[in-house]
């Protein structure tokens, strides 16, 4: 399930800026451990952000997104107290979903 995401959403002049910090290893599958064996790839493939029921961002990640991925984006609309839901899925089929309210 992974650790909780940190989600901040702030509305200013009708535009909501969302910042997400995901806790994930994002292993590339290129790295070798001390014994020389390749560390298997383990990374988030899809991340979706919703404002209420409406998708405001859907993204696909490759392994070259940094460990503990950070993401910031803006969308029009959204009001204080509205719910933002961010969910991800990784290449092992693990998923996680977290929510935050717009400030």
């Amino acid at each position: 399930m992974g650790n909780p995401m940190k989600i901040r959403a702030a509305n200013k002049d009708g535009v909501t800026e969302v910042k997400v910090l995901v806790s994930h290893e994002m292993e590339t599958g290129q790295r070798k451990d001390s014994a020389g064996a390749i560390v298997p790839a383990w990374f988030i493939t899809e991340l979706t952000a919703k404002h209420g029921d409406k998708v405001v961002l859907s993204s696909e990640f490759g392994p070259s997104v940094s460990k503990n991925p950070y993401l910031a984006f803006k969308f029009k609309g959204g009001a204080k107290g509205d719910k933002i839901t961010v969910s991800w899925k990784d290449n092992k089929g693990d998923t996680r979903s977290d929510e935050a309210a717009i400030n």
Binding site: V15, L57, S66, P69, Y70, L71, A72, F73, K76
Partner: peptide
């Protein structure tokens, strides 16, 4: 409705 302005690492 989503702006073309995305940041990541």
């Amino acid at each position: 409705g989503t702006e073309a302005n995305v940041q990541t690492r």
